[in-house]
Nucleic acid binder design. Structure first.
Lengths: 340, 340
DNA sequence: CTGAAAGCGCTTACAG
DNA sequence: CTGAAAGCGCTTACAG
């Protein structure tokens, strides 16, 4: 049915070995090269990656494992990663594990049985497991995105979460805000904790007492951000500024604010997280912490690729990429006085 | 290195053929079965899907091709599809083509060279091409999701787009609205056209004249929905109701409305599209057209699976799944009088 | 630079 | 029910 190296070899009057060498970029006699090229074209030959994989013990696929396929941050990162991987002829096979540790382990063995050559993992709140350790034992490179994984030493691509929060809070402080609320994500996650820590650090640095009622939790969801914001606005002494720590909570918060009578930035200042389409649509445009999703994806991809080529220099490496505080118009300058 | 059928065979004192038969669920002598099971367990044997694929000419992977990995509708559908496919041991390899016809064709040949066994395609504004036709020629099942593709006869899973719009508009009409605006998606797409058609049909059915200034285009994006809404609200005679035809435009519109002084549903009625987390968060909860993404994904998956098993009954089949109009509180009843 | 041959890990007629 | 053997489409020492 499909045309194979054997057919090409016959047509070009060489051995299959020579065809194979041609395909893999080895030098060969000019005349042979030309005849093979012609034969390939005439016959419409295409390599069979499966057969190739069997010999080389390579599947030319990279597993991508994440909590949910509908997570905008992860899919943005993956989009960039895919582009880089495709250049080297790798394709990605994706699995979501619905934030379940058990499902995660299941998916890991599933992907293992498909002989993925490498793994890009967004662990979220999940932890190491034997299934994961087996990858490293078998020399299959694993790259973790925006997470730590205590007890699992592998390459990581992260973002300066602590610093991001620090600068967001600091920016508010520089604008004379002292009543700064944070809407935290799940503290069971690395990003949730780190982003909270940066906030705490900023308050400490500038000698601003931490007020418990300004520390809320939105579970990284739209609804959570919405509820937390409602709760903050209902406080007897509401904050003068709110800082949200991911995209979903940001928009939950914005909707809650829009529903109330308070206005950004006159009545309340606001710093959101992540910069996707909505961030710039709303009015006033939001000051946000922008995560370099494209760069993260490219780094994740190039790191697996590098390991795949056997270059294990510096392993395990951690690339931390800087976020950017995008200053727009959602933060207003308070006058110096404090009414507390 | 890794343990193979040969190792299992040796340990269990049978031939590799027998081990293979065991793996594929054939009956065999009780004593052999037991010894093989033990050997597999002791050796930690796992099948090599690549080798299997070479013999069977199957890769056990399904290609998923879509315009953008960050599209919430598509990723919701894929999530459900993946679940079903995984049950049959298929994994999905995804490619986005960034809404470019050229990239699409490129990805199609790319996936072809990885021997995907089937294809789930979200064509968006792209059209048929030789690369795609080749799949059918080679008996690789292709299922198209929520789109038509003139000149390409294959299985399709769609949604009752026309009817969805018809019922949305009708619902507004039943609530005495006559000045109904629509925010259309790109008319180069199937869903864009169909959703517009349903609106037109409703107006025609109820003898309501079409007003050009109420027909706007939001290009399926947040920003587009935002801009179109601003424009509608600025009209000398603004509509009494707005209907948006996808999720992104819905939230662009909501933000625009929130920024203005008009209130939902008192000043303006609103029907959105798609029901993801935000739809229920905002206040008042939105009346929306809900697309059964889970069902769509399951149908797409089970349809490829069926074709893969050689069951070509009814080919090409078109499953049209019903949307639901979720009635919440964003539509108000007008009094009978008209002020036009 | 190239051919002949063995082999990657599995499956499947064939013969018993 | 099972073994021996050929083969899926490719790669790669080996010898020349």
């Amino acid at each position: 049915m499909s045309v194979t190296v054997r057919d090409v070899a016959k047509k070009a009057n060489v051995s299959v070995g020579t065809v194979s060498r041609f395909l893999n970029g080895y030098k060969l006699r000019e005349s042979n090269r030309i005849r093979i090229e012609e034969a390939i074209k005439e016959l419409g030959f295409r390599e069979n990656f499966i057969a190739k994989g069997l010999k080389n013990n390579r599947s030319m696929t990279i597993g991508v494992v994440l909590a949910s396929l509908t997570d905008l941050f992860a899919t943005s990162v993956i989009t960039a990663a895919e582009r880089v991987l495709a250049q080297d002829n790798y394709s990605i096979v994706v699995c979501d594990f619905e934030s379940s540790q058990e499902k995660l382990e299941q998916k890991l063995t599933f992907l293992k049985s498909r002989s993925v050559d490498g793994l890009i993992l967004f662990p979220g709140s999940c932890t190491v497991s034997d299934e994961l350790r087996e990858y490293l034992t078998d020399k299959i490179p694993v790259v973790i995105v925006n997470d730590d994984m205590p007890g699992f030493d592998t390459d990581k691509i992260t973002v300066d979460n602590v610093n991001a929060s620090f600068r967001a809070a600091e920016y508010l402080i520089h604008n004379n805000h002292r009543d700064i609320a944070i809407i935290n994500g799940d503290q069971g996650t690395y990003t949730g904790r780190e982003r909270y820590n940066g906030y705490l650090e900023a308050l400490r640095t500038y000698d601003i007492p931490l007020r418990d009622e300004y520390v809320t939790y939105g579970h990284f969801s739209n609804r959570g951000g919405y509820t937390a914001t409602k709760q903050l606005l209902a406080l007897e002494h509401p904050p003068s500024a709110i800082y949200t720590t991911n995209y979903y909570m940001t928009f939950g918060a914005i909707i809650a604010i829009n529903e109330s009578k308070v206005k950004i930035p006159d009545d309340i200042s606001f710093i959101g997280f992540d910069r996707f389409e909505l961030s710039d649509v709303i009015n006033p445009p939001l000051t946000v912490v922008e995560q370099p999703t494209k760069r993260l994806g490219e780094l994740a991809a190039s790191t697996v690729l590098r390991r795949l080529k056997g270059d294990y220099e510096g392993f395990p490496v951690e690339h931390s990429v800087n976020t950017k505080l995008i200053i727009k118009e959602s933060v207003s300058r308070r006058d110096g006085s404090s009414d507390s």
